[in-house]
Write a protein that binds this DNA or RNA. Structure first.
Lengths: 124, 124
DNA sequence: TCGTGGTTACAAAAAGGTGCGTAATTTACT
DNA sequence: AGTAAATTACGCACCTTTTTGTAACCACGA
């Protein structure tokens, strides 16, 4: 076990949602029920392993529900839980925030307060 | 430029907010202007390297404004930009979502989603 | 043999920590 | 007086830890 104490909930959520995949998977999952291979098609750059890893993480967190149908070839379906659905608008809001705040290209906005030095040295 | 064009804004935000520190720093910064050493005190486990790295990332993203005062010992102050302030309630909402959906912290009220294992051991 | 969902072992890459150096000025000690 | 140390916010180099990718394997029925 790595860490045991839950400091603030924000840390917890971010630990869950951090990385490229969690929000992306939620994004695709909000479209409805998806199978493993569907999600791979939706997002071709995720590796097999990552997908099953992330899916399990979301499942453990109660965001995604996994339904396994018997038989072969094995069939498994994933869908958002009610809790997962409640999360969607929050994630969307973040996306909207991004669009409206730092839009497109550079944002310089020299605020011009009292301090002496210039604000930012630009980098790559 | 390092990354390709912006796919969906959600990916962008998450790339920015992913990790332990960004949201934490925003959390502390919403209390007002902070200096480098203040933030280190607020969060003793962050290394000075990480702090300056994350701070610069947030600055580049337009969330944090860095104000450098001349003189020695050098003094630098950090504060949220208006955009950064707009981000705060969204992050709070995520925290609230976590509290109300999954009880990780040791609250009561089993949500009744799955057979509970032992409540002491939780896997990452 | 293929196709599905998943796991494991190993390798690569990314993230993160430690410690040293730097600046200009004040304070501390000799 | 003169030297040494501390201060603040970093950058850089080096090293460890964590995460992610690759590839192969398993199950089994068509």
């Amino acid at each position: 076990m790595k860490s045991l104490v839950s400091r603030c909930p924000i840390e917890e959520v971010m630990q869950l949602l951090s990385g490229r995949w969690p929000t992306l998977l939620i994004y695709y999952l909000k479209q409805g029920t998806k199978r493993f291979s569907d999600l791979r098609r939706d997002n071709p750059t995720i590796s097999h392993k990552m997908l099953s890893l992330e899916l399990r993480k979301l499942e453990d967190a109660g965001i995604v529900e996994r339904t396994e149908f018997g038989g072969y070839p094995l069939r498994v379906e994933y869908q958002l839980t009610p809790g997962g659905h409640r999360l969607v608008p929050l994630i969307d809001a973040l996306g909207y925030w991004w669009e409206t705040t730092s839009d497109g290209g550079g944002h310089s906005s020299s605020a011009g307060a009292e301090p002496v030095v210039s604000n930012t040295v630009l980098r790559d």
